[in-house]
Design a protein around this nucleic acid. Structure first.
Lengths: 244, 244
DNA sequence: CAGTGGTCTAGACCACTTC
DNA sequence: AAGTGGTCTAGACCACTGC
């Protein structure tokens, strides 16, 4: 019998460095918004050349985990920066200008996860989760009705009051109150008919076509922590996507 | 009066090299699918180090204009490669497996551009354009109804017969018959009600919600050359998007 | 002015492909 | 074995920021 070694295990130095930096991020050694050590310091710490650290950081900043600022340093990405406020929002008014959304939270309840949510968030069916309902408005008119599911453990203590006391994007809220930074998200989009609840919140008639966007968001380590189902009124705005 | 010089004109060497490579691509000096000169050769040609050429190619391959293959060379991106066949298609069956679409071309006519199309393709209103109608099916059931607009000059001679004689993605067709390679695209997505034509082609009832995707595709030099409006039946499939 | 990221070089060596 | 892309280093210098 022949033993076949998996020879595809080769991993360049800079990827190992990348993994080390990643685990520091995941462990919370460097908080969102603050600077990590300089390239020279890291090179010394890991006993490699600056170029190798640089390449590791290159990839991490391409993945939006780190942000370089020439002359200042390299910073841990955060949703609290102005230009990152609505990083995952792809909805744009047909007129073209930029969106400023206003949230109105309707409810926030503790429920048991059904199978669908549990699977999406990699929890056990029946685990305790939090369900938030909200409506987003753009210059006075409601354009999105959203349901948001969160693990009750990670977001322990989240309440309607705390949500109403917050101004700004939810992801900045998660970051500052629950030490949870969102790294990436996956969306599945469909066209559906507005049901009664959706229609009333968006001031449409029942059966109107609305854009359904189902999103799962992930923190460090590919851990899914939020699932949300949005219903957009796309009569005066659209979802924008660039393909490369 | 004071003259303000734009001092933000600094551009590193590798970007200048990048621009040179780009113009060779745009000029058709290197055709899609074939290898460009090796990094060493290019370094010699431009009198810079290999590292500088490398960084230029890094960016071009991140933008999907070039494709590196270790040990073989660097190749001009092409839509004729298997793994690029449906590079811009984001529609996925809910079941998860991969799509194999079959095209049925309904018509192909020469018309005059209205203002909307002319603007999108940066032509003059009234310019001659080609309008293609088609239906795409997935395992027998129609899931997309598309209208496609092209500049009649660039795509001179395109006919329903030539379309029917082609098997494979349209973008590979454009490449091989009209020397036009698509580099990127922008999509605007809405939920709309199916009109009579759309409903009959997709075997839905009139008024059913369908996903409207309006796409503008660009060749080298940011030149828009195709506009298409797709209507997807999203009852059993969805549009997928990843946010980073 | 010192410190940070950003560029550029030259040379050595590694991994993969092809002949 | 030769040729390609991929990695790594060490050192010099440039551009930007803030004290």
């Amino acid at each position: 019998m022949t033993i076949v070694l998996d020879s595809a295990t080769f991993s360049p130095l800079y990827r190992q460095i990348k993994r080390l930096i990643l685990s520091s991020l995941q462990a919370g050694e460097w908080q969102p918004g603050v600077a990590i050590p300089s390239e020279m310091e890291l090179a010394a710490r890991y006993s490699v050349s600056q170029g190798t650290v640089r390449k590791a950081i290159d990839e991490l900043s391409a993945e939006n985990l780190l942000v370089r600022k020439q002359g200042k340093g390299t910073f841990v990405a955060t949703h609290q920066e102005d230009d990152w406020q609505y990083r995952f929002l792809r909805l744009v008014p047909d007129s073209g200008q930029k969106v400023v959304l206003k949230s109105h939270f309707l409810s926030c309840n503790r429920i048991k996860a059904n199978l669908e949510i549990a699977t999406a968030l990699k929890l056990k069916g029946g685990d305790s989760i939090i369900l938030i309902d909200r409506v987003q408005s753009f210059s006075g008119t409601p354009i999105a009705y959203e349901q948001i599911w969160l693990s009750a453990i990670r977001f322990k203590g989240l309440s309607l009051d705390s949500l109403n006391a917050w101004f700004g994007p939810l992801y900045a809220f998660y970051e500052s109150k629950f030490a949870t930074h969102m790294v990436r998200a996956e969306e599945k989009i469909k066209a559906v008919s507005a049901d009664a609840a959706c229609a009333s919140h968006l001031r449409l008639s029942i059966g109107s076509p609305v854009l359904s966007v189902e999103r799962i968001s992930y923190t460090y380590g590919n851990k899914p922590v939020e699932m949300r189902r949005s219903r957009y009124d796309t009569t005066e705005q659209h979802y924008e996507n660039n393909l490369n």
